[in-house]
Simulated scan of single mutants.
Amino acid sequence: MKTDTFKGVIDVNEKGEAFMYGKNELMYLFKSNPGKRFYYTATTKRSSQQNRFMHKWIGLLADHIGEDFDKMKRDLKVKSGMLWEDHVNEETGECWKELRSTASLSVEENKKFLDWMQRFAAEFYRYELPNPGETQAIKFT
Rank of each mutant, 00 (worst) to 15 (best):
Ser32Phe: 06
Ser106Ala: 02
Ile10Pro: 03
Lys79Glu: 12
Glu67Ser: 13
Phe30Pro: 01
Gly35Lys: 08
Thr44Asn: 09
Asp86Tyr: 10
Glu134Cys: 02
Thr41Cys: 10
Pro130Glu: 10
Glu14Phe: 04
Glu123Val: 07
Gly16Ala: 09
Tyr127Trp: 09
Tyr40Leu: 14
Leu26Asn: 06
Ser101Asn: 12
Arg119Gly: 05
Ile138Tyr: 11
Trp84Glu: 12
Glu94Gly: 01
Val12Phe: 10
Ala122Pro: 00
Pro130Asn: 09
Pro34Glu: 08
Gly22Glu: 06
Glu109Lys: 04
Ser47Asp: 02
Trp57Pro: 00
Lys139Met: 08
Lys111Leu: 05
Glu90Trp: 02
Phe120Leu: 00
Phe140Val: 04
Lys112Gln: 06
Leu61Ala: 08
Asp115Gln: 06
Ile10Gln: 13
Glu90His: 06
Phe38Asp: 14
Phe140Trp: 06
Lys71Asp: 11
Ser48Lys: 12
Asp68Ile: 13
Lys97Trp: 02
Phe30Lys: 07
Ile138Asn: 05
Pro132Lys: 14
Lys79Arg: 10
Thr41Leu: 14
Ser80Tyr: 07
Glu85His: 13
Lys73Phe: 03
Asp63Glu: 15
Asp75Thr: 07
Thr135Gly: 14
Glu123Ala: 12
Ser48Pro: 01
Val88Ala: 12
Gly133Glu: 03
Ala42Cys: 04
Ala121Asp: 03
Asn24Gln: 09
Trp84Thr: 05
Lys112His: 03
Gln50His: 05
Thr43Trp: 01
Asp70Ala: 10
Leu60Ala: 08
Ala121His: 04
Asn24Glu: 06
Arg46Val: 01
Met27Cys: 07
Gly8Ile: 04
Asn13Ala: 08
Arg119Thr: 11
Ala42Pro: 00
Gly59Pro: 05
Lys7Met: 11
Leu61Gln: 06
Thr3Trp: 06
Phe53Leu: 09
His87Leu: 05
Lys36Asn: 12
Lys77Trp: 00
Glu91Met: 09
Ala18Tyr: 06
Leu29Tyr: 05
Ala103Trp: 02
Gly81Pro: 03
Ser48Glu: 12
Glu109Asn: 00
Leu29Phe: 08
Glu123Ser: 08
